[in-house]
């Protein structure tokens, strides 16, 4: 745990953080609103006290109640991974600014998050599906994804009857959604 990093982050982004800075093992986590992503990320990338120059990972997360985009950053200045969580994206229309202006390599990771969660990254020049077929309509890693629903909507519907026979009655979907507060 890097206490100095925590102090620096609190001093720099104090009012923007949506929840207290959380530290565990070698990870420091800050949570911000989706609109603050470009500013915060640019600040931790550019400013000499942070210099988080390497984008280690970009992940979409569906907590069951809201959507998140999680960035993991690495810097020489700290022994910790910096985890930036863009929190509180709506599940109906999740939108977050893209970070491709800083890391061109985030393009495919954002495409993947779009493919799996339907998160729209504003500013990504090539936001289309990356793994799933282009005519696919569901987002498989969302917690309300249900294979039978997916099969019924897919172009191959009716090909394999097994998958269709389990479509739940309408209204039951909500109880199936797994949620976390972590």
């Amino acid at each position: 745990m890097d206490a100095a990093l925590k102090r620096r982050l609190a001093a720099r982004f104090g009012e923007r953080l949506t929840s207290p800075i959380h530290q565990r093992h070698d990870e420091t986590e800050i949570r911000i609103g989706p609109g603050d992503v470009p500013d915060v990320v640019r600040a931790v990338h550019d400013e000499p006290e942070f210099r988080f120059i390497l984008l280690a990972d970009l992940a979409g997360v569906d907590t069951g109640t809201s959507m998140q985009v999680v960035y993991h950053l690495w810097s020489e200045t700290s022994a910790d991974w910096l985890r930036v969580v863009a929190d509180g994206l709506s599940r109906e229309d999740p939108r977050v600014p893209s970070v491709t202006f800083l890391w061109q390599g985030a393009e495919w990771m954002e495409r993947e998050a779009y493919d799996m969660f339907g998160i729209t990254f504003e500013g990504n020049r090539d936001l289309r599906r990356i793994y799933m077929p282009p005519d696919y309509q569901s987002f498989p890693l969302r917690k309300d994804f249900y294979l039978a629903d997916d099969a019924a909507r897919s172009p191959g519907a009716g090909v394999r009857h097994m998958e269709q026979s389990h479509t739940p009655r309408s209204g039951r979907t909500e109880t199936l959604v797994r949620k976390t507060r972590a």
């Binding site: 565990r24 990870e27 990972d57 797994r178 976390t180 507060r181």
Partner: peptide, 28 residues
Amino acid sequence: GRAYAAVEGPRGQYSAYVISDGTDQPFR
């Protein structure tokens, strides 16, 4: 809770990011 770990592999950085919701299966 959440945990992130990375190792240096023959091709570069392999990493995993796990979210637990208290059950016996990873939440994410």
